[in-house]
Amino acid sequence: MALLWAALNVVIAYLFVTNAFVAKTAIKEGLPAQAALLLGGALIAVFAVALARQSLRILRAPGAAEG
């Protein structure tokens, strides 16, 4: 489930980042909105990848979860 959640968030990150560069965002909302989408998308991607890596680590070695 955590992997699925991470995958959905990667899709969201992709949509954030790609929409930072489309014409409508640039014309209608300007540079701050583009920067916010880009930064937000990048951050979601980083955190989603971190969660996916952690989930895969647990799947590969269930006993390896600390504690």
Partner: peptide
């Protein structure tokens, strides 16, 4: 995302 990452590892 961060909360899940942290607690799953612990």
């Amino acid at each position: 995302l961060d909360h899940l990452r942290y607690t799953l590892a612990r």
